[in-house]
């Protein structure tokens, strides 16, 4: 019998500094780790602990994983101290992943906040690898300051694809920034998509998700078409350790992405 609590060794191939607090780790696992966009892995720092991350790389490359990590606590601090060549562990994948099949033929709005663009990037890869699968991909991205925007070198490439547009905003004006200023929700006003048939997926801080979901419903999206990457402490990955539940749903097993319709009436679900 396999041991689902035992991490698989993975070599750190490269460390990419995205922002002062965000790094992307390129991992080469001892065996390929097939995953669907939106499914997450547990990254294990030997002797320190585990933390959950959704890969930011393409699901079509299970032998080379990119994981983008914001330094926020004990395990992420240990991850940020890693150098190329060191060995860590991975477990997973866990969760359902994004509802890719439901995006076929639809206009897709992707709303990211800060490091929340990382899991969505995996979805973008999956969509870009299927030209014409989604009718349209509109990327809305917000960060507090220009220096905190992830994956900056890729925006131009994304926006140049047919049917794809990209807009970034920062919370407050900053020297040298000529783009949009304001919270990411301000990018959701006056979108040229049909909210009745479009689908939106969002990942970011809980408070952002709350306002993004409300705004999308306000502009006409059905709650069933708004998917939120819920934030909870996911540990075992199997729905059994008891800490990541939102109502009766264990996010590590049945999430982490849930529709707004599934969570809007659950007490404490969105703070």
């Amino acid at each position: 019998m396999g041991n689902d609590f035992e991490p698989l060794p993975a070599r750190v191939e490269e460390v990419v500094v995205e922002t002062p607090t965000i790094r992307t780790f390129v991992l080469r696992p001892a065996a390929p780790v097939p995953f669907r966009a939106g499914q997450f892995l547990q990254l294990y720092v030997p002797g320190v602990g585990e933390a959950p991350f959704t890969p930011s790389s393409s699901p079509s490359e299970p032998e080379r994983l990119e994981i983008t990590v914001l330094r926020a606590g004990r395990v992420t601090a240990a991850l940020h101290a890693l150098r190329a060549g060191e060995e860590i562990g991975v477990r997973g994948p866990f969760g359902r992943g994004y509802p890719l099949a439901r995006l076929e033929g639809r206009e897709v709005v992707v709303v990211g906040g800060g490091v929340g663009l990382a899991p969505l990037r995996s979805l973008l890869h999956a969509l870009f690898e299927r030209p014409g699968f989604a009718r349209r991909v509109s990327i809305k991205y917000g960060a507090r300051a220009p220096g905190e925007l992830c994956f900056r070198r890729q925006y131009a490439d994304w926006a140049a694809r047919p049917g794809v547009d990209f807009t970034a905003t920062i919370d407050r004006p900053a020297e040298g920034w000529t783009g949009r200023v304001g919270l990411v929700t301000t990018l959701l006003d006056g979108m040229d998509v049909d909210p009745r048939t479009a689908c939106a997926l969002s990942c970011g801080p809980e408070v952002m998700l709350r306002f993004v979901a409300r705004k999308l419903v306000d502009v006409g999206f059905p709650a069933e078409s708004v998917f939120l990457s819920m934030n909870r402490n996911m540990s075992c990955g199997m729905g059994i350790c008891g800490r990541c539940n939102v109502g009766s749903v264990f996010l590590c097993r049945d999430g982490p992405d849930l529709s707004y319709a599934e969570v809007r009436h659950v007490p404490y679900a969105l703070g």
Partner: peptide, 24 residues
Amino acid sequence: CHCFLLHDLPAGEGAARLRLWDSC
């Protein structure tokens, strides 16, 4: 009740993962 905590710690040359009873 079966809530548990995965507790990782160094052990000898390597590391060990313990499961400890936890409480909601």
